[in-house]
């Protein structure tokens, strides 16, 4: 074997990643930088025009509707994430055992997760119908004043949140179940020998062992719920009076209905930044778990 042959750079491995690399560059890298570029342009349906600096961003921060969508999105995250984490943890603690009944029940609580947003919203719109929906029937049964869930400004986003919680609670539950099953059993045995009761072993063994999973699940849910779109679009169209309009809905409206591409691109960069902060936190938490990437 000659030295030239040994020293020759081996590019053949490159061929294996080439197909993915082409898709990655055309679908993610170029659109990402092109999108950042668009956010500094005066752009409309006919493509980018002139460079306008931060004008699109400045316009957004003076746009009452955009600021409202930011507020709504944070409110929605607050409405959903704590409930999802608590319910998910509660269900996981109750159904953590590997037994037939527990398996079936876990399967039921997880089942809504696999449905599409279209099906979920259709089901919940049918339930929230003012006069004849399931909710209205229940309210009448108890003699309460029925609420127009989807058209009441105080209730629209809460209704979307209720449907979302029903849709999403399976994932936190399963992540907590996986974490619970990794807690060594002898910890509990040792504690009970030392005379700890159930409450004490929950407080001093279960909760500390779950700490990282709780943080992780919270971050995953924040990132997910921050991207609220389909539920709000299909259940309330963002109404009434924009009370249930989210940031992503604003991007959709600006970018694909009003063709105000500059605003839409700027809004999507702001969303990206907010999600990036959460993603960074997730990266730090998962890396601390001792995984190597």
């Amino acid at each position: 074997m000659s030295t030239a042959q040994i020293k020759r750079t081996d590019w053949s491995g490159f061929l294996f990643i080439l197909p993915y690399l082409v898709i990655f560059i055309t679908m993610i890298v170029i659109p990402l930088f092109w999108g950042i570029n668009l956010s500094f342009q005066k752009a409309d349906l006919f493509g980018p025009g002139e460079f306008v600096g931060f004008e699109n961003y400045a316009r957004l921060f003076n746009n009452k509707i955009f600021l409202q969508t930011v507020g709504n999105t944070f409110y929605f995250v607050l409405l959903t994430v704590p409930v999802l984490v608590v319910i998910g943890l509660g269900l996981a603690l109750a159904l953590n055992k590997e037994a037939p009944l527990q398996n079936v029940l876990r399967g039921i609580f997880f089942s809504s997760t696999i449905l599409s947003v279209t099906v979920v919203t259709l089901i919940w719109r049918i339930i929230f119908i003012p006069n004849d929906g399931l909710m209205a029937n229940i309210f009448t049964q108890f003699g309460w004043e029925p609420i127009a869930f989807l058209s009441d400004p105080d209730w629209s986003l809460i209704s979307v949140a209720i449907a979302t919680i029903w849709w999403c609670l399976g994932l936190p539950m399963m992540l907590f179940v996986a974490a619970l099953q990794q807690i060594p059993k002898d910890l509990y045995e040792a504690a009970s020998i030392d005379g700890a009761n159930k409450m004490q072993s929950f407080l001093f063994i279960t909760l500390p062992s779950l700490y990282k999973t709780i943080v992780l699940v919270t971050i995953i849910q924040i990132v997910m719920q921050f991207q609220l779109f389909g539920q709000a679009l299909l259940m309330t169209q963002g109404g009434p009076n924009n009370t249930s309009r989210s940031i992503v809905m604003f991007i959709y409206d600006a970018g694909f209905r009003r063709w105000d591409i500059g605003s839409a691109a700027a809004a999507s960069q702001i969303l990206f930044l907010l999600i990036l902060i959460a993603a960074m936190a997730q990266f730090i938490v998962t890396r601390k778990k001792g995984e190597q990437i």
């Binding site: 890298v29 659109p31 092109w34 992503v248 969303l271 990206f272």
Partner: peptide, 24 residues
């Protein structure tokens, strides 16, 4: 380098690229 760049792609949400992707 390539692997790290691809991993960074995990953090890019669909909404951040969707306008430009639609134009492309």
């Amino acid at each position: 380098t390539l692997f790290v760049i691809i991993l960074m792609g995990l953090a890019v949400p669909e909404q951040a690229v969707i306008i430009a992707r639609h134009q492309i």
